[in-house]
Design a protein around this nucleic acid. Structure first.
Lengths: 232, 232
DNA sequence: GCTGATAATATTGTCAACAATATTTTTTGC
DNA sequence: GCAAAAAATATTGTTGACAATATTATCAGC
């Protein structure tokens, strides 16, 4: 796979390992700004501005834009410029569909490839402390835990192909995930679902883990559908 | 989505609709050469050569390389150059896993979105004539039929997100698909499986269609595993 | 003839200048 | 004062030249 499919540990931090070439650094920083809503959807981004800010030539920015476009993070209109991709409700539903099957595959493979003990740390992370945090609306703690869950599973699944697809999708839906968390009841439901998935994984029941993970995404989709007027 | 996710009707022909910008044309032609094995895996490709051949500057070729790299068709080693991506057995197995769930999703959505009559043409295409052709090892006819099947399903599924993912994967596995067809028994089995899937789709049984499509890919995976010494 | 250092060549990486296109501002006619 | 045309400005598209790096060829010493 390409270099971009390396581990992204924290949700929004830049990735030191992908900072090899000059262009990669640019891609990574722009990606960070987009997924953190520092550059919100619809923002116009000018090549010159970025070139000046980063002290590189416009060609580098241009290359970065090409990659960002390929990843679906920005949209380029010929001779007009680039804007941060604005997703409509339909696109989010499509992404939920794809996430459902891919994240299902992720936990299935992860379960098949690991011993039960592998999941102990995660099970502890998704314990009483986090439950309390979620109950008290500490979304940062919950987001961080989910990121660890995700990362651990991808690692265990051991498929670079899958990792690449999930990373791309993750970038596109991160800001929506954060917003969805605000919907009353969604976070605690998601928390319980993750506990269930982890139990199945520790039990080595790959099929059940896949079913539960798919349920998890489908339910997130339902919440989105119900509240999309507020979320978009 | 980006421009690349437009319809790719025939397996290896260039796509007129994507030939807007200069770079797009290059990407499309290079993609064609790679998936047709005109540029086999491992081939070194030089920026200068292509620039001269296409009568454009090296920068255009460079941009095209960036996109091709992002799609996983070529590999670029800094200061050394680009080579057509060479897939190992592991990568193919990973791709089979991903295809299984994504193509399953594809037929499920396609079934849900269509009336039974929608599939009549395809059912006729996968009729006695094609069966005879397959029996007589007319792989071109079968490949073409599969391409139509695929295209029709993607169209019906109506998800640009899914289309983008499947298009990328398709390019990467096309040459392997062609080779797999040579394995005695695989083509006719695949043919029957597609007939079954089409039946389920016409019956409106989305779940069953998904199950059968996943079976289809899993069985292809098995054949690959068994014969990979000959296939790679 | 072989090996290692060095020069010559080839290839990729980066840039700044110019061309083409779009946007904004100014001017002109009414 | 308003509308349309024209000029000025800004932004993206493309190119060729030069720098940095890697590969190949040459040559000296043994």
């Amino acid at each position: 796979m390409t270099k971009r499919n390396v581990t992204k540990l924290t949700p929004v931090s830049s990735n030191p390992r992908s900072s090899g070439s000059n262009t990669d650094k640019l891609v990574d920083e722009l990606r960070r700004r987009i997924v953190t809503n520092q550059m919100p959807p619809g923002s116009r981004i000018r090549e010159n501005e970025l070139a000046e800010e980063f002290g590189v030539s416009r060609s580098r920015v241009r290359d970065a834009f090409g990659i960002l476009e390929e990843r679906g993070l920005i949209e380029r209109i010929p001779n007009k410029g680039a804007v941060v991709m604005r997703l409509e409700a339909d696109s989010f539903l499509e992404l939920f569909d794809v996430r459902e099957v891919l994240e299902g595959l992720m936990v299935r493979l992860a379960t098949q490839n690991t011993e039960p003990e592998y999941w102990d740390d995660l099970i502890e992370l998704f314990g009483d402390d986090l439950e309390k945090a979620v109950a008290e609306n500490d979304f940062n703690a919950y987001m961080a835990a989910i990121a660890v869950f995700r990362q651990t599973c991808i690692e265990a699944a051991g498929s670079d192909t899958l990792r690449g697809l999930l990373d791309d999708i993750y970038d596109r839906v991160l800001s929506m995930t954060r917003r969805l968390m605000l919907v009353p009841g969604r976070a605690s439901e998601g928390f319980r679902q993750h506990q269930g998935i982890l139990q199945a994984m520790k039990a080595g029941d790959a099929e059940q883990a896949e079913v539960l993970k798919r349920d998890n995404i489908r339910s997130a989709r339902q919440w989105f559908l119900k509240y999309n007027d507020f979320l978009l």
